[in-house]
Design a protein around this nucleic acid. Structure first.
Lengths: 219, 219
DNA sequence: TAGATTGTTAATCGATTAACAATC
DNA sequence: TAGATTGTTAATCGATTAACAATC
């Protein structure tokens, strides 16, 4: 049967976001298993390691195809590679980072990204003290040259690690330049057409849910 | 009726995590409204701003009590304050940061935390170049003094911004010292007793879901 | 009062879990 | 072959949305 690059067949219904959010975690566990030279694993074994149900694992995977074999389970390396393809990690994703402060630099220095096809190709800032420096070999540019840079490079993702006050305007500019995916760390929500993908990392919201759980215990 | 500090009555069933995760966003929108001197708002108006249903807002809020008034809606300032209490933001949460690299420093420098009762009281690292420096007035300590520090201070939350290889051991130590909430940025899962709260921020997983969405479009 | 909007019950929808025939 | 485990359908569970009486 003809399948597309994600392993899904054209015309099938969209995968729910609940499933999508679990995929990277499967990928991480499979990578760990692979590193430990585990050759095969059953949904039951994996479910015990990951603290989920075996049923959920099988349901999730079968959204993308039948990767297992009855009586055997799943070949770890094969499933790892297939999951990588599903996640688009076999492709190169060029990333620019808007805001070269601590958070922007932290992303640029992150080891995990490189090895998964995420290539940081530039950081941008307004601060003259940062412009011209390099982070892990990647230059910090004046944000004034953003337009030229985006036109000359294939930018898959723009990470927004700048202050709340500046984020909306820069996001608008990026979208008008044709950037189609934003990884947003500023505590704001955007309202772009649906072909613009936005993934929010709202750290304040994350720590507030932790605070909630701390203070609501034993009640 | 007697209510506890969260606005919930003792004995009522636990709030679902789907609801809890939405609370900080309500809080943010209410804070923005308050800044803009908006005095009252209906669930319908708020739903339009937030891109959710009015029904969901009312359902969510009513887990914690009736904050509105028929025919009027909600008083913004009152609801904002009540939400703050529900989230535990009226309390002081002392935070230590394990790993004083870019990410740890980014957290220490984050403006939003201070104003919501999250006080960074120390950073810890093994790197002699970092030990002794201060970030926003907060000192970076040698991680060797962690035990003494935790015993002498009331640590509500420990943020783990250190490499994957070091995270599990440090986490173990923190939990053995009685720290009850971990804010984990390392790409690992922990398996502590359920009285230890763990909030994961897995940046690699976040960007992978974005990659998935980029590469699965139009299929 | 009339209109607006809540709080809450009921209906719907979607996600998770259970079960099991197919089959390696 | 017998045992194990998948892929998939059916059952259950939980979350979201709709509806509306209560009431400001």
């Amino acid at each position: 049967m003809a399948e597309n690059s994600t392993g899904r067949q054209a015309g099938e219904k969209a995968i729910s976001s609940a499933v999508i959010k679990r995929l990277p975690r499967y990928y991480r566990y499979l990578g760990d298993l692979l590193k430990n030279n585990v050759v095969r694993i059953s949904s039951k074994q994996l479910s015990q390691r990951m603290n989920v149900t075996a049923s959920q694992i099988r349901q999730d995977l079968n959204n993308f195809g039948g990767f297992g074999q009855q009586g055997y389970g799943y070949n770890v390396e094969h499933l790892y590679n297939e999951m990588g393809k599903i996640l688009g990690l076999d492709k190169t994703n060029n990333i620019i980072i808007l805001g070269a402060g601590n958070l922007g630099q932290a992303l640029a220095n992150n080891q995990d990204f490189d090895s998964n096809g995420f290539h940081i190709i530039g950081l941008f800032d307004v601060n003259p003290k940062l412009i011209g420096m390099t982070v892990k070999g990647v230059e910090v540019y004046d944000i004034d040259i953003l337009e030229d840079f985006v036109k000359e490079h294939d930018v898959a993702i723009a990470a927004l690690t700048l202050p709340k006050s500046k984020a909306p305007k820069v996001a608008e500019q990026l979208v008008s330049l044709g950037v189609k995916a934003l990884w947003n760390f500023a505590p704001v929500d955007f309202d772009f057409p649906e072909d613009v993908l936005v993934e929010n990392v709202h750290l304040s919201e994350s720590i507030m849910t932790l605070s909630y759980r701390i203070h609501s215990q034993n009640e």
